[in-house]
C-alpha cells in the first residue's frame, strides 16, 4: 500500500511533466526534446533565488515563470521556421532543433551550476494517510500536481481559449478557418507547457532535489509517459503518468531501478508498436 501511494505521488509528477510535453506536441507538432532542460533551468533559477535570500514563494514563482518564458522564447525564435513545414517534416525538424537546444542548454547549465541543487526539504513531519505514514512533502507535491492538472483540464474543457487549443490540436487548418489565431494560441500553449515543466522543478524539489544534470533523464521520462499516453493526448498523459508511477515504485522496490527503467522503456516501445494512439486508445490523436 505504501508503495502504491509512493507510486501515485511519483506518477502525478510524471503526469505534470508529460502533459507539458504532450500539450505542445498536440498543438504545435513540436516534440520538444529540451523539455527536461526547462525543468532544470527553472530549478536553477529557483535555487539561486533561494540562495540569495528570496522568500520561498517568490523564488518558486520565478522558477515557474522562467520555464514558461523560456518555452515561449523557443516558440517565437528558433521554432519559427518549423511552422512553415507541415506534418512529418515539421515534426522531424523540430525534433532535431530542440535536440540541439537540449545539448546547448545542458552544457550551459552543467557548466554554470555544477553544484547547485534545488532542494526544498523543509522540515517534513510525516502524516498518516489511509493507514500508512507518508512524508508531508510528498503530499504537498501531489496536491500541487493535482491542482495544476485539474486547472489545466478545466481550462481546456470550459474556457474559450481551451476550446481554441483543442480545436487547433484536432485540425489546424479547420480551426484557422473558424477564426482561431494559431500563433497566439501556440504561444499560450508554450507558456502553459513550460510553466508545467517549471512546476515539476518545484514538486521534484519538494520530494527530493533537482540538479543541473537531470535534464536528459527528465526528457526521457516525459517521452515515455507521453508515448504511453498517446502523443498529444492530455488525458492519456495523466493516466499514463499515474500508472507508470505506480509500476515504477512497485518494480523498483522488487527488482531494482535499472531493470525498472528497462520495463518502462519496453512499455513505451510496445505501446508504439501495438497501439500508437496510446493506452486510452481511440482513433487519431
Amino acid at each position: 500500500m505504501a508503495l502504491v501511494l509512493d507510486g501515485v505521488a511519483f506518477g502525478l509528477q510524471l503526469a505534470l511533466l508529460a502533459t507539458g510535453l504532450t500539450l505542445i506536441y498536440g498543438l504545435a507538432g513540436v516534440l520538444n526534446l529540451a523539455h527536461g532542460q526547462l525543468v532544470v533551468a527553472a530549478a536553477m533559477v529557483g535555487a539561486v533565488a533561494l540562495g540569495a535570500g528570496a522568500p520561498v514563494l517568490l523564488a518558486l514563482g520565478l522558477a515557474v515563470v522562467t520555464a514558461g518564458a523560456a518555452a515561449v522564447l523557443l516558440d517565437v525564435t528558433l521554432l519559427r521556421p518549423v511552422y512553415r513545414l507541415r506534418g512529418q517534416a515539421r515534426v522531424l525538424l523540430s525534433l532535431l532543433l530542440t535536440l540541439g537546444v537540449a545539448f546547448a542548454a545542458d552544457g550551459l547549465l552543467v557548466h554554470s551550476f555544477p553544484f547547485t541543487r534545488l532542494n526544498l526539504s523543509v522540515a517534513t513531519p510525516s502524516v498518516e494517510l489511509l493507514g500508512v505514514t507518508v512524508r508531508s512533502a510528498s503530499v504537498v507535491a501531489s496536491l500541487v500536481a493535482i491542482v495544476a492538472l485539474g486547472g489545466l483540464v478545466v481550462l481546456l474543457r470550459t474556457t474559450r481559449v481551451g476550446r481554441a487549443i483543442r480545436s487547433l490540436t484536432q485540425d489546424e487548418e479547420g480551426a484557422q478557418l473558424c477564426g482561431v489565431d494559431p500563433g497566439r494560441t501556440r504561444r499560450l500553449v508554450f507558456v502553459l507547457g513550460g510553466s508545467m515543466a517549471g512546476l515539476v522543478a518545484v514538486t521534484q524539489g519538494l520530494v527530493s532535489s533537482v540538479g543541473a544534470t537531470s535534464g536528459l533523464d527528465l526528457t526521457i521520462f516525459a517521452l515515455i509517459v507521453t508515448v504511453v499516453g498517446g502523443l498529444g493526448r492530455v488525458s492519456g498523459a495523466v493516466v499514463a503518468g499515474v500508472l507508470l508511477g505506480v509500476v515504477h515504485a512497485v518494480a523498483a522496490f522488487h527488482i531494482g531501478t535499472v531493470l525498472t527503467f528497462v520495463i518502462l522503456l519496453v512499455a513505451a516501445i510496445v505501446v508504439i508498436l501495438v497501439r500508437p494512439s496510446g493506452i486510452l486508445g481511440g482513433a487519431g490523436s
Binding site: L31, Q88, V91, L92, L95, I220, L223, I224, V227, L231, G256, V258, L259, F261, V262, L265, V266, A268, I269, I272, L273, P276
Partner: peptide
C-alpha cells in the same frame, strides 16, 4: 511493417539504445 512515422521510429530506437545501456549496467 508497423508503418511507423519517423518520429515513432526515432523514439523506438532511442528507447532501444537506453534499454541496451541499462541491460549492460544490469
Amino acid at each position: 511493417s508497423r508503418r511507423l512515422e519517423v518520429i515513432y521510429l526515432g523514439i523506438v530506437t532511442l528507447a532501444f539504445s537506453l534499454v541496451f545501456t541499462n541491460l549492460l549496467l544490469g
